[in-house]
Design a protein around this nucleic acid. Structure first.
Lengths: 355, 355
DNA sequence: CGATTTATAGCAAACGTTTGCCAAAAATCG
DNA sequence: CGATTTTTGGCAAACGTTTGCTATAAATCG
């Protein structure tokens, strides 16, 4: 059927700029300018060209343009390998927010998963060095690097989100993890709590360091020793938040002198911890106050409703895109850190300790 | 500093195939064949070329290749506008699973959000008709269409996931919504339940139709009238699952003859419903059995732990990619429907009715 | 009205690959 | 050893745009 190359073919395989030019009776270059540049072509000609383009259903070929101008309009987002967080909607929200902002700027979003294997690193580097991609937003603390190629010297602008990587020379958009936890701990101290239980994320992870740091700062500020807080966890990734919480409940049960307040680094941990603790006969907030991090909507429907520190995910996404698009202009990337404050949501899981 | 065009420049802006050819002492075409075709070039030459390529850190330019061969290696996934589901991790899991499968096939994943505005439709169509994209996976029931261009006749292979759109001629990968709900309803009937409460998704939505259909089928099979089930909800989208559940709890309270079993179309709905119902003094499963759909991990940590029908998200993702990649070969897309069975997770939220 | 400026349109050369076709070299055969 | 086949490598033309430069037409001026 389509062996015959003479058939019109307007329908099947897409009109070309040349077709539009022919129909409008102008040169190809004029069509190009009419569709892109603002004032370079006469208003009447432009109208004629637009009409022709619409009539043919013409859509410019993105790869041809990209090749010619040496830039793509695709932004890559690098997600941590396992984005299987139980209850938080961080990843979908990030994607949505970023994609929305990008589209307004005429860009597209490509996603890449950074696992711990060399294959995924290589894949990302191919994207970066193969000219497919114009800029990068990264949600992982590791910059892909293999065989001498490193994302760091791909020449692409990179913005780190959620994690502060300004030390590594990256623009970073984060929330105020440390202060937020410091403030909420201070509030717990003010309520009378003196013994704390901290449920940790993976040891050394930015969020864990910051949030734990916040606890310590609050203790210090109140003249309390670091001994006042017991750590649980630290060896599992956030994606195993429920397991961490379950484990923490076991840990908790073994303590002789029981803490009266729990600070969890994710809502997942808090939820499974609370579930197990209640099953063991303790009551919240009667015996134990609980607060966690993320701001997952479901916390409202726990019993009791859980207090949580809400991450300003959408704002961070928007800020990351703004920063990235700005950086596309400059040649020299300024290194900076943008902090978007979180929001503490106080619910019934917090009270003064019993005596 | 880089005004001088004579500097080596191996570092900065990427080596070209020509550079590799020069270093290896062969022609460009030989390099091209060495890197792509299997047996077309002598083993020794190939080794030399590979060495040169590695030494220069050469990465082929994807857009140039794409332009030349007339195909991109990007798959677009179209997500429904608001993917803000409270507790289910469906979207991240889908993305992860799909991306993983795609990468193995040498493809990349681009995401597109289909909102209800013309802008997002136009954007998707530009991607599809602009040659940027090689195939489409769609998670929305609406095919973008504007100004005479429609995704349906973009010539791209399209696979629908989660929703059955085989009627519209699309390859579809779904789970057995209807049967799963039918079976679980039958089980509730077997336990002695005779009055049901159904918490609905948006009226007319595929999932709602199927799942409600399952309830009705089970009733019929047991010789019970449709009157046995009360519907609540139907006007809000799944993204407002918590609100639907809260509303449903209010509805429930107004009923004179109270149902003894609740079937919710999403975990979100079940969770907020349960929260409110318990606050009103009812006990689960003592007064009321509850089951829902999605299989969110957090259901295990509710009190009581919630029974739920788990969607086989990863398998569906893999299947969708397999189907799509197959379709890239054929010219004629067969229209078919692939059903991946769900898995019922029985937990303590279900029991026999009181009397 | 001729000369100079300004607006508009066209020609053709890129962008970095892939690939059809041909030539040279190597291997095989009679 | 010459003739034929097979392997291997190179030339150059695409792919669909953008854009520097040039040519024409229109407008302005002395």
């Amino acid at each position: 059927m389509n062996k015959n190359k003479d058939v019109a073919g307007e329908e099947q395989s897409g009109a070309l700029m040349a077709d539009v030019a022919r129909l409008a009776g102008v040169a190809i270059s004029t069509v190009s300018r009419a569709l892109a540049n603002p004032g370079r072509v006469n208003e009447k000609t432009r109208a004629k060209i637009n009409a022709a383009a619409r009539q043919l259903g013409y859509t410019p070929n993105a790869m041809a343009r990209g090749l010619r101008v040496g830039k793509s309009n695709i932004i890559m987002i690098i997600l941590p390998g396992s984005l299987y967080y139980g209850v938080s909607q961080i990843i979908p929200q990030v994607l949505q927010s970023i994609n929305k902002s990008l589209i307004q700027g005429g860009y597209n979003l490509m996603i890449a998963n950074l696992d711990r294997d060399e294959l995924s690193e290589r894949h990302i580097l191919d994207l970066a060095f193969g000219g497919s991609v114009r800029g990068v937003i990264i949600l992982s603390s590791k910059l892909p690097e293999v065989d001498g190629r490193s994302l760091a010297n791909s020449g692409l602008p990179i913005v780190s989100m959620l994690l502060d990587m300004s030390d590594a020379g990256l623009l970073s958009v984060v929330t105020n993890d440390r202060e937020a936890v410091r403030d909420v701990t201070a509030e717990l101290i003010r309520l009378g709590h003196r013994r704390f239980f901290y449920i940790a994320g993976p040891e050394g992870n930015y969020h864990d360091v910051e949030r734990y740091g916040g606890v310590i700062e609050a203790l210090e500020a109140a003249g309390l020793s670091e001994e006042r807080v017991r750590r649980s966890g630290g060896h599992l990734d956030y994606q195993h938040g429920f397991d961490i919480g379950v484990q923490a409940a076991d840990d908790f049960a073994t303590l002789r002198e029981r803490p009266t307040a729990v600070i969890a680094t994710s809502d997942d941990m808090a939820i499974s911890f609370v579930s197990r603790i209640q099953r063991a006969g303790l009551s919240i907030p009667g015996d134990l106050s609980v607060v966690s991090f993320d701001g997952s909507p479901v916390c409202e429907f726990s019993s009791p409703p859980l207090s949580t520190i809400e991450q300003p995910v959408e704002e961070m996404g928007r800020a990351a895109v703004d920063l990235l698009l700005d950086a596309l202009g400059q040649t020299q990337n300024p290194t900076a850190r943008t902090v978007i404050p979180s929001r503490f949501i106080l619910r019934e899981s917090i009270a003064a300790p019993k005596n």
